[in-house]
Design a protein around this nucleic acid. Structure first.
Lengths: 64, 64
DNA sequence: CTCCGATGTAAAGCGTACTTTCCATAGGTA
DNA sequence: TACCTATGGAAAGTACGCTTTACATCGGAG
């Protein structure tokens, strides 16, 4: 799965730390997701998308 | 998280077994998700929503 | 140069997502 | 009766999501 988290985060001028706090997870979790080291849980993915004003499918894409 | 999987599945006239096969998971996984015993992974949630012609947020709802 | 904020990464630990195998029950049909 | 499908669920194993702690690098501000 690829995602646009880094792009969306920078678009809001936030650090990984700040985004993590806004979403209730650690900065390492944000980092790992941005790097594609693993996918977020479903509830976190929904919170993230909602935070950026998007639906899950607009933020997370199945890699072809 | 609550979800509409059972309702959507029955709307298509499918058994848990048949849905599991269509999505590439076991029938026990479908059962557990319908019962709310746990949430699906993000890729499975996206596959499920897509299978039913919906976005993730239309199938899985945050609790409150 | 020194200090700091931001980022990358690793280890250990915990809970969960998912599997296979197995057992059990209910309803329908022959 | 016996059989079959659909469902619910337990047990054990594997892999992943997420945490805390810790260390390291880089760039900018002073």
């Amino acid at each position: 799965m690829r995602n646009d988290v880094r792009h969306l985060r920078l678009g809001k001028g936030l650090s990984q730390q700040a985004l993590g706090e806004a979403l209730g997870v650690s900065r390492q979790t944000i980092n790992a997701i941005e790097q594609g080291r693993y996918d977020p849980s479903l509830p976190l993915a929904i919170r993230m998308a909602r935070y950026f004003g998007k639906v899950v499918e607009e933020v997370f894409h199945v890699d072809p």
